[in-house]
Write a protein that binds this DNA or RNA. Sequence first.
DNA 1: CTTTTATGAATGAAGG
DNA 2: CCTTCATTCATAAAAG
Lengths: 210, 210
Amino acid sequence: MIGWEKQQQEEQERRDNGGNVNGNGVLYVKVMTDEQLETLRKQIAVYATICEQLVEMHKNLTAQQDLAGVRLGNLYSDPFMTSAGHKITARQRWTPTPMQLQILEQIFDQGNGTPSKQKIKEITSELSQHGQISETNVYNWFQNRRARSKRKQQNSAPNNAESEVETEVESPKDKKTKPEEFQSQDNSAPRAEDLCFQSPDIGSDLHFLD
Amino acid sequence: MIGWEKQQQEEQERRDNGGNVNGNGVLYVKVMTDEQLETLRKQIAVYATICEQLVEMHKNLTAQQDLAGVRLGNLYSDPFMTSAGHKITARQRWTPTPMQLQILEQIFDQGNGTPSKQKIKEITSELSQHGQISETNVYNWFQNRRARSKRKQQNSAPNNAESEVETEVESPKDKKTKPEEFQSQDNSAPRAEDLCFQSPDIGSDLHFLD
DNA sequence: CTTTTATGAATGAAGG
DNA sequence: CCTTCATTCATAAAAG
């Protein structure tokens, strides 16, 4: 197959491009901005959802037919749903180098838990000496670090109290968020009329998974 | 299926054949070969085709049921997709359905960046046909969408004291650093139409979904 | 190779 | 509007 792996790592905020590129060899390539890719990704996701729903409907119908004694057999199979359904939307992500991680941890421990805008810039600047990184990466890192640190703390604290008072299974008891009428993901079947895709010449048939 | 997520980020040893790469802090773009694009196209086509076929199957089944007088009605308005994995547990926060997203995105792209109170109502009204939603949701969505779009844009400009010798970089990538004029601040989601990925009007065949 | 875990990133909502 | 937080999603890395 083809190797998408030719792609290089990068962050999510690049836009525009420098026209066409080529390597040391001759290589014609298409260049897409991240926004374009993102849009593509979402549109594919829409397809995935539609397919899922259609399959679900099918299962229901088939089940009914079962009751009626009209088994049609497994026309659908989810293998493709899982294989093609989500892999397409692959997304790359930054991975801190050990050095970067060390520095980040260090800063985090210093208590200046408040990553101000300016601070971020500085940190990013410094870290970039040790590898590819962007301000967003730094920002995210601190966000996640704090959130997870917090969660961990609150997760282990109530447990070591003398008598085990916490028999809770999962429910976040201190749900400070207002009890708002939760709107469950209704997820009513999509009206595809509203999907504004169009199709090119893709007149291919069903040899997905090829 | 192929994974274009296979790329690797190495601190200083990057060496790919793309040539459009660079060290830290430089302009990145997604690069795809024609082959890769073709594959993507096929995959999308697969979705379109599968949807069509499922629709056909559904019609047949429905027709049979009609004949058999076993019309059971809305069995397939199942609130949750069990195949997706996590949807079973009710969610406490609104998650736009793909269709809602599509519509929102569309409206957002139209440039009328300021969602007036009245507009919000209209939009909410329309979107509620595709799933549970409230005006607050819509309002928040636009708020967030705009804020993040903006940040993203302003984040993509800075660079770039190219320092590290990325031996492979050679091609004069004419960086058109003109992030602002590209599109007004109200539009940041390039339509995929540019890429020729459009889908067939499967919508007309899916009307029963509703 | 498949499953699990750790964690970077996305995003709805709240606050100011 | 902008920033911050909480939660969820997706995936690179680790484990089996």
